[in-house]
Amino acid sequence: MDISATTVKGLRLSRGWTQQHLADACDISLRTVQRVEKDGSASNDTLLGLCAVFEIKQKTLLVIPAPSHQQMQQVSLQTQTLTLAIATLCGGCIGALIMFLVLA
């Protein structure tokens, strides 16, 4: 899971803690704290421990990757196709209802 390494380090330093102090407080290894602050990778348990110790919400640390241009185009094309199909179906039904009412 990707988390903000700079945020973790900033929170730790703002409290005047060493990496070992943070590791002890979270009940994780020093190596895990070093990895989190270097790479920003952490397990769900590590994330929960950090959030508990720092008294913050998970969304404060989580890094949500931005979708690629290709993914955005793909979603847009699927949405356009679905919208066109629904509009065509609704238009056909409304047209048939109008013809039924006029001819009846």
Results as ranks from 00 to 15, higher is better:
62 L>Y: 06
31 R>L: 00
52 A>K: 14
71 Q>T: 07
17 W>H: 04
36 V>F: 01
36 V>S: 03
20 Q>P: 00
45 D>G: 12
52 A>W: 04
80 Q>G: 03
10 G>Y: 11
28 I>T: 12
37 E>D: 00
85 A>H: 06
72 M>V: 14
86 I>T: 15
5 A>R: 10
66 A>N: 09
31 R>G: 03
34 Q>F: 00
18 T>W: 04
63 V>C: 11
69 H>M: 08
47 L>Q: 11
100 F>V: 03
96 A>Y: 14
37 E>H: 06
103 L>W: 04
51 C>Q: 03
17 W>M: 13
88 T>M: 08
11 L>D: 02
52 A>I: 02
92 G>C: 11
57 K>F: 08
99 M>Q: 08
48 L>V: 08
37 E>R: 01
17 W>F: 12
55 E>F: 01
15 R>C: 10
68 S>E: 03
33 V>G: 03
10 G>H: 03
63 V>I: 07
92 G>N: 13
24 D>H: 09
68 S>Y: 00
18 T>F: 03
56 I>F: 07
44 N>D: 14
101 L>T: 07
1 M>L: 15
93 C>A: 12
43 S>G: 13
56 I>A: 05
6 T>Q: 15
87 A>W: 06
72 M>D: 02
97 L>A: 04
82 L>A: 14
38 K>N: 07
92 G>Y: 08
19 Q>K: 14
56 I>T: 04
102 V>L: 07
62 L>D: 02
9 K>G: 01
77 L>F: 05
99 M>T: 06
99 M>L: 10
16 G>W: 10
7 T>P: 00
25 A>V: 02
12 R>E: 13
103 L>P: 00
63 V>H: 03
45 D>A: 09
34 Q>P: 00
4 S>H: 14
38 K>M: 05
77 L>Y: 05
24 D>M: 15
54 F>L: 03
104 A>S: 11
16 G>N: 09
46 T>D: 00
2 D>E: 11
91 G>P: 08
64 I>Q: 13
86 I>N: 07
42 A>N: 04
66 A>K: 05
87 A>I: 13
3 I>D: 09
53 V>P: 12
47 L>P: 01
85 A>R: 15
97 L>K: 04
89 L>R: 11
81 T>A: 14
89 L>T: 12
6 T>F: 08
35 R>D: 06
40 G>R: 07
18 T>P: 02
80 Q>W: 04
72 M>G: 05
99 M>C: 06
48 L>M: 12
76 S>I: 06
68 S>L: 07
